[in-house]
């Protein structure tokens, strides 16, 4: 028996090895490097100087940053909130329609991925452009004045971010809604709950795993947004991603860019830890709570 167990452990190791190597080489080591570079001085030619310094950490206290960090967080939070707000009724509907129609609707949700992300963002730029179709249409409808700018502001960034991230919210929430037992809604109504009450106190808790996944799937990529604010945003809607790019390509200050990146990595850890703590709480034996 022990003779058989050994080769089994060995093959198991062999099978899991590639993913460990992959993770180690392409994720763990680069992350450690990024954190390490933060503590190196920059050299005037855009490279990394010798020795160790806390200089970069101090510059992170630059009064410019809190505004950008704050904007990054609230833009991402707003994107996540609005995506979930839009995706939840959509998923509810998706899980209730006939399987045929559902197939087509799901196809429509995934359809945007057939076009390159960059092309889609540029398409938005065309749409929102001062001479673009959308602008003309809205002016013609007297909904906006001719000198309102649709492009290069936080609104445009938010719009395109929601557009981009929405499928990532719909899919996990739909997956949860599809597994939801809708007889529970009937049970809630039977016990006197109106439709809204049944939705809030039975449906939402029922799909909470999907909601948490959607939160992570939208919030974390949003924090690292770079292309969208770069293309449709302006100087007033810069996010951390843009600052990192600027430090890398314009200022050629790698330690500085690494410092910002490290900060972002830590910032991403916060919601992840929070969500996994929430999940653990859900699976733990219930504690005694009052009325």
């Amino acid at each position: 028996m022990s003779g058989r167990a050994k080769p089994r452990a060995w093959t198991e190791w062999l099978v899991t090895m590639p993913s460990f190597v992959w993770l180690g080489l392409l994720f763990i080591i680069p992350t450690v490097l990024v954190f390490a570079i933060t503590f190196r001085p920059s050299d005037p030619y855009g490279g990394i100087g010798a020795g160790w310094t806390l200089e970069t950490l101090k510059t992170l206290g630059n009064p410019n940053y809190p505004a950008i960090v704050w904007r990054t967080i609230w833009m991402s939070a707003l994107t996540t909130g609005l995506c979930i707000l839009l995706a939840t009724p959509m998923s509810y509907y998706l899980s209730r329609v006939s399987p045929r129609l559902r197939q087509w609707l799901l196809l429509l949700v995934i359809l945007p991925f057939w076009t390159s992300f960059l092309v889609r963002v540029f398409a938005w730029k065309v749409l929102l452009h001062p001479d673009g179709f959308l602008k003309h249409a809205l002016v013609w409808l007297h909904l906006i004045s001719p000198d309102t700018s649709l492009l290069y502001n936080a609104g445009a960034v938010l719009l395109v971010m929601i557009y981009t991230e929405l499928p990532f919210a719909i899919l996990p929430i739909y997956a949860a809604a599809e597994k939801f037992d809708y007889r529970l809604i009937e049970a809630a109504k039977d016990l006197g709950a109106g439709s809204f009450r049944a939705f809030v106190s039975v449906f939402l808790p029922g799909i909470r795993v999907g909601l948490l996944t959607a939160f992570l799937m939208v919030f974390i990529p949003s924090l690292g947004s770079y292309v969208i604010p770069d293309i449709v945003g302006g100087p007033t809607s810069e996010m951390i991603g843009n600052k990192i790019a600027q430090r890398t390509f314009v200022d050629r200050n790698l330690p500085h860019a690494a410092g910002l990146s490290a900060f972002l990595s830590v910032a991403v850890l916060v919601p992840m830890v929070a969500v996994s703590a929430l999940r653990r709480k859900n699976t733990r034996a219930p504690n005694e709570e009052g009325v």
């Binding site: 007889r183 049970a187 039977d190 039975v202």
Partner: peptide, 29 residues
């Protein structure tokens, strides 16, 4: 509508709310 009728149902699969304790299930109505 069902939520205004003074009738209550015991469903075939019981339809207990999985996220609530038994206490909270009974207290729901």
């Amino acid at each position: 509508p069902p939520y205004q009728r003074k009738v209550n149902t015991i469903f075939q699969n019981y339809a207990l709310f999985p996220h609530l304790s038994l206490w909270d299930n009974i207290a729901f109505g």
